[in-house]
Structures are given as C-alpha cells and as structure tokens.
Amino acid sequence: MPAVIVGLAIVFGSINPNFWSATNLANVSRQMSILALLSLGQTFAILSGGIDLSVGSLLALVSVVCAQQMKAYGLVAGMAAGVLVGGLAGLVNGVIIAKGRVPPFIATLGMLVAARGAALTLSGGLPIAGLPREFLVLGAGYIGPFPIPTVIAAVAFVLAHVILSRTRFGRYVYAMGSNEEAAVLSGINVGGYKMLVYVASGLFAGVAGVILTARVISGQPTLGEVQELYSIAAVVIGGGRISGGVGGIGTTLMGVLILGILGNGLNLVQVSSYIQNIVIGAIIVGAVYIDLARERRR
C-alpha cells in the first residue's frame, strides 16, 4: 500500500511538477484533514463490527450549530458547541445501537437522514454568514509550515492510535469486532464500549465539522454529502476489514492518503472530474480485492 502511494506521487509529480510544491503539499494535506478525521471515527465504528453512516450529515449539523452559537456567544463557544453536538449525536447513535439493539447500519442511517433534516431546520435551509474573520485562521492558517487542519488531524491520528493500541477500550474494540459473542462471554461490557465507539466517531465528526465551517467561514446545511461513503472507503482501501476486527489507524491513514492524493493529483494532471470518479470507484474495489486475494494466498 505505501508503495502505491509513493508510485502515485511520483507519477503525478512527473506530469505536473507543481504537485511537489510546498503550496500543493500543504494544500493536499489540508484538503485531506476533513476526510481523515471522519475516517478515524469510522475506523472505530468498523473495527468494532459496526459502521457509522451518519458522519457526512453530522458535518452539516455541526456546521450549522457551530455557526449559530458562534454568532450568539462568540468564537470559542461556537467551536465547543460544534464538537459537542457531534459527540451528542454520536451518543444518540450509541444508545440506540447498544440499548435499543438496532443494527448500526440502520441506526446511523436514521441519523444520516435526521441530522441533515436538523441542519436544514435549524438554518431554514440557508447558509449562516457573518462569522468572525479570525475564525478563518482555523481553516486557512499555518503552524510553521503546516496547515492548522493538518496539525489537528495529525494529533487526532496519534491520539486515536494510542487509544486503539494502548488502552483497554482499544483492545475491546478489536475484541468486539472479531467476535462479539466471545467478547460478551469474556465479561466485556460490550454495550458500554459500543456507546463509547459512536461517541468517539461523533466527536471526530464534530472536530471535522468545525474545521470545515472555518474553511467555508459560514454555517452550511448542505455540507458533507456522501462523505460517509468516502470515510468507509478510506478505512477499507487501506486494508481494514468491513466486518470488523482487522485494521487500525495505520491502514486508515493509507486509505486517506490514497484518496487524498488521487483527488488532488488527478486535478493537477487535468483528468476530467467525471473520469476521476470512475478511477476512485475502481480503486476502492480493486484495493479490497487485492487485499483479500493476498489473504487467501497466505
């Protein structure tokens, strides 16, 4: 997988040298940060044997709530409200899945539709403009040579990696995804940890939504269409198993990098956006096929 990424980068770089320019590398990493954060949450959900279809719509809900609270109570309150509403929606998902025993696919599908509806209701369908100019910095600013969204995504990756590999919660996520029955029998509080999984996914979507709101410096109820599907694609392209238990932050990072570099690189080498969709579709299926074929050979 890393070889594919290097290969892509070399091909794009040789066709358009601007691919390697500092502006563009900052550019790709900034564009990837939203998908990266969503994919982190998705990694938790898929690893645990579930799925979170609501993350795309949550971007819109977070964006609207963040913008409205920011206009009413200021910069910090708005950002906090955005992250919080993401976590809250995740908690609702978690409760419905863990306590209501509704399959994650259905529960989060419901949230996908409802969160978009809530975003449209709260905003009346219109964008919310007039946010403080300083908020732009979160989406467009830099820490040293690195774009702020990139830094936030990188910190989130490290944090998620530590949680998954160093904590009891992380081990239980894998255990639930590999064999839920065994996890229950070995005394793991599966319900509680499941809730935690979806809260985590919601919080990551919350952070992503706040950054995206800064990038568009307005609350936008139409943001995030089909982003949930790209986040699932990022998890499985890297080698995460769709049924859970296999994968991790490393494989998700690979998936995010491939999707991000492809999107930007194909634009830079001027491949039609229609053809881009065909290429990305083929890569999603192809990557998983190769992965499975390799597994079978072993």
Partner: peptide, 17 residues
C-alpha cells in the same frame, strides 16, 4: 451542494499556479 469540492478545486488551481 458540493461547496467543499469547489473550495478544494480553487485551492488546486492556486497550487497549479
């Protein structure tokens, strides 16, 4: 509905100078 995509496209145009 794809504002985020337009923003990325503008950034890509800036990057390709």
């Amino acid at each position: 509905e794809h504002l985020d995509k337009q923003i990325s496209q503008i950034e890509d145009l800036v990057a390709s100078k």
